[in-house]
Amino acid sequence: MDLSSINPVLLVASLMVSATPILFAAIGELVVEKAGVLNLGVEGMMITGAIVGFAVAVTTSSPLLGFAAAALASAVLSLSFGVLTQYLLSNQVATGLGLTLVGLGLSSLIGRPYEGIKSPTLPDIHIPVISDLPVVGPMLFQHDIMVYVSIALVAGVWGFLKYSRLGLILRAVGESHDAAHALGYKVVRVRMAAIFFGGACAGLGGAYLSLVRVPQWTEGMTAGAGWIALAIVVFASWRPWRVLIGAYLFGGITVLQLNLQAAGLQFGVEYLSMSPYVITILVLVVISARGAHGAPASLGRPFHASS
């Protein structure tokens, strides 16, 4: 094995790229869960975003249009989950699973003509001076725009939940929907908006995967990224900045694992490729063993104004 082939600068740079899809999906899901809704369909929304974004980017040769279309498509798809769980009061766990299955089917149906095509990629931005800094420049300041958008989104969600009135209402809805309803807030409407936002974020994450990270379309390419995003929300104890940390840690593991494979570590490729999932489980165990969760009190509970 040749560890010297692993370049720390490139490692950090590719870590940020590999963490971005999960970061998008996780920060969206955080808002959804803060509103008291457990949407297990992240995987399905992500993969729908991945193919819609890819298809639009290839047809229009504009990656940014691809991202916009992906966000819209996944958000619209997530509304089906919203209608089912919020208006028709279906079980959230089952509906989320259904959304994942629908998303996987839908994506491979749309994606058939797009297999094996290369997508137009986003150019890396170049900021005068700081992008040219030695070491730090290529590590942090030579990425494409979406990496920074994802970080800005985390900051935005943090500010929104902590300082804005609407954020307070959203948290109230998530903590006690009955109390929020009694105060006259529209519980269902707030939740629908949160679900819509979560869907859009998952779509962006999926599109980042197919347009930048890979950049290609293959069937089932999300490979559990949506589920890992769900785990990261738990890991983060429902706090935005910790979602960022969680996603980057996870991205780091993924990249390191790939680098070790490339460096020819004599330790089964299969064991390395299962490591992100095993580590996710271990992290979940550590977090849950610690007890204090900070999960929204109404998470996953259905709301009907009459009962």
Binding site: V83, L88, S90, G105, L106, S107
Partner: peptide
């Protein structure tokens, strides 16, 4: 396409969950 059957099955679950509201 083979995927349309997968979608078909997913839709079945969705419609079932949607119509279940009439039970309660």
């Amino acid at each position: 396409p083979g995927a349309s059957i997968q979608l078909f099955q997913g839709m079945l679950l969705f419609f079932l969950l949607a119509t279940d509201v009439f039970i309660n």
